[in-house]
Amino acid sequence: MPETANEAINMYQASVPIVLRALTNLKTILGKAEAWAGEKNVKEETVLNARLALDMLPFSKQIQLVSDNAKGIAARLGNVENPSYADDEKTFAELHERLQKTIDFVKSVPEAGFSGSETRELVLKFPQRTMEFTGLAYLTGFGLPNFFFHYTTAYAILRHSGVPLGKPDYLGG
Rank of each mutant, 00 (worst) to 15 (best):
K90G: 02
K125C: 05
S84M: 11
I157E: 01
A137E: 07
W36S: 08
V123Q: 08
A33S: 13
G31T: 11
R51Y: 02
K107P: 12
A37M: 07
E89M: 05
G31C: 12
F126I: 04
A8C: 10
K27G: 15
L158W: 05
L52C: 08
I9K: 13
D55F: 08
E7F: 15
Q128S: 12
F59T: 00
D87Y: 00
E3P: 07
E121T: 13
T46W: 00
E94G: 03
E121G: 10
D87H: 00
D68E: 09
Y12W: 13
V16R: 03
V66G: 07
E3L: 15
E94Y: 00
R21D: 14
A154W: 02
S84K: 14
N41T: 10
W36I: 09
A137M: 04
I103P: 03
E89H: 02
R51V: 01
L48I: 03
A112V: 12
N25K: 14
F114L: 10
M11D: 01
L30S: 04
N146H: 07
F149Y: 10
T46N: 08
Q100I: 06
K27D: 15
Y155L: 10
E111Y: 11
L26C: 12
Y12E: 09
I103D: 02
A33E: 04
T102K: 09
I73P: 00
M11G: 00
L30I: 03
G72S: 11
L30V: 03
T46G: 03
S115C: 04
A75Q: 01
T140N: 12
T24E: 13
R51L: 04
A14G: 09
S115H: 11
L122M: 05
Q128H: 10
L77N: 06
L171M: 15
Q62N: 06
A8H: 15
P2S: 15
G162S: 05
T4W: 02
N10Y: 06
F147Q: 01
K90V: 06
P17Y: 11
L99Y: 10
M131F: 08
T28P: 11
S67E: 00
F59E: 01
